[in-house]
């Protein structure tokens, strides 16, 4: 097993072991924090597909994160108040079943990513960064001023949604759901990376011309990658909303996009388990520094700066060496 493989194994087991320890030590909040890590990592895995593999720096993934959150919020709030979402042309009821909510979140995020991607991928480089940011901001202002689902106040869901056979209100059980999804999606991401599609995408990132000469349109490759990426981040958004039992336009904020980008870079761009390491590091920093002083964000900034200046390749990249950066 390569060094990166060992690190990945350690990260995967560590993320599982920590909440199990917390359960034993009766520290339920540590389980909640671990769940947050798993969900943010999931969002990061989604972004990593477009950013690491496709070279598409999106500063608008909050759009997908938020749409996933609102898919959960809208479905659950209608189920909570026993009012249908649509009565015409056919009656569509809300639901509290997690699997249904996930599917809706994934589909909604996928459609949104298809629309945003189809338009944004005409640009590249900084223009791509900024046009994705613009779409994110559009959705943010829309959500803030759209009164039907709470506007800036957001939507509270009083009881966490249900998963067959589990009690999702128990912190550890909800963590296990998030963890299982994260592992499944990591497996999927590994498959995509090694598939002919992934290899072509990687080649399109490095030498677009060469891909075109063998008859593959880089635009289509990138669009597919962007849509898959958006769907994964949308799923993470639905879970995050369930973790907090609350959705609000803050999920659409550009800072949310920024934070997802940050945890991917922190962990190591294009590294399979990079987002896991990045999310764990970011959440731990926020938790540990929060009590130091009112001005704790200065220290957060200094740590982030140190990582980007002195630990190139992020946490996984630094630990694993550079050998497998593109593998």
């Amino acid at each position: 097993m390569s060094r990166e493989g060992l690190i990945n194994l350690a990260l995967g087991l560590g993320l599982l072991a920590f909440p199990l320890w917390a359960e034993w030590a009766e520290e339920p909040f540590m389980i909640t924090l671990s769940t947050r890590v798993a969900i943010l990592a999931l969002a990061g895995v989604g972004l990593n597909l477009s950013l690491g593999l496709g070279g598409l720096v999106s500063l608008g993934h909050a759009a997908f994160f938020g749409i996933g959150g609102y898919a959960m919020g809208i479905l659950a709030s209608h189920a909570q108040s026993y009012t249908p979402i649509f009565e015409w042309p056919l009656v569509i009821e809300g639901t509290k079943a997690m699997p249904v909510i996930w599917l809706v979140a994934i589909a909604a995020a996928g459609l949104l990513a298809l629309a945003i991607g189809a338009l944004s991928l005409r640009t590249s480089g900084v223009y791509f960064i900024m046009i994705t940011l613009a779409f994110g901001q559009m959705l943010f202002y829309f959500a803030v001023s759209w009164p039907a689902y709470g506007g800036e106040d957001g939507l509270s869901i009083y009881v966490r949604n249900a998963f067959p056979g589990l009690n999702t209100l128990v912190p550890l059980q909800f963590f296990l759901i998030a963890y299982a999804l994260l592992m499944a999606v990591l497996g999927l991401a590994a498959l995509i990376t090694r598939s002919p599609f992934g290899l072509a995408l990687d080649a399109a990132r490095q030498v677009p011309v060469r891909v075109e000469t063998v008859g593959i349109a880089p635009y289509r490759l990138r669009l597919i990658a962007f849509v898959i990426s958006g769907m994964i981040t949308g799923l993470a958004g639905a879970l995050y909303a369930d973790l907090n039992r609350f959705v609000s336009p803050a999920m659409f904020n550009w800072q949310t996009s920024g934070e997802i980008v940050i945890l991917v870079i922190l962990g190591g761009t294009a590294r399979l388990f990079g987002p896991v390491a990045g999310a764990a590091f970011f959440v731990a920093l926020e938790h540990l520094l929060g009590g130091v002083s009112d001005y704790w964000r200065i220290y957060l900034g200094l740590v982030l700066l140190a990582v980007v200046l002195f630990a190139r390749g992020g946490i996984v990249g630094t630990l694993a060496g550079r050998e497998a950066a593109d593998g």
Partner: peptide
């Protein structure tokens, strides 16, 4: 505790204060 004016942080702090 500082909520940074973010709803998700506020919810998590509330969870921590209640649970831990």
């Amino acid at each position: 505790e500082d909520d940074q004016r973010k709803p998700d942080i506020a919810v998590q702090l509330a969870d921590r204060m209640v649970q831990s």
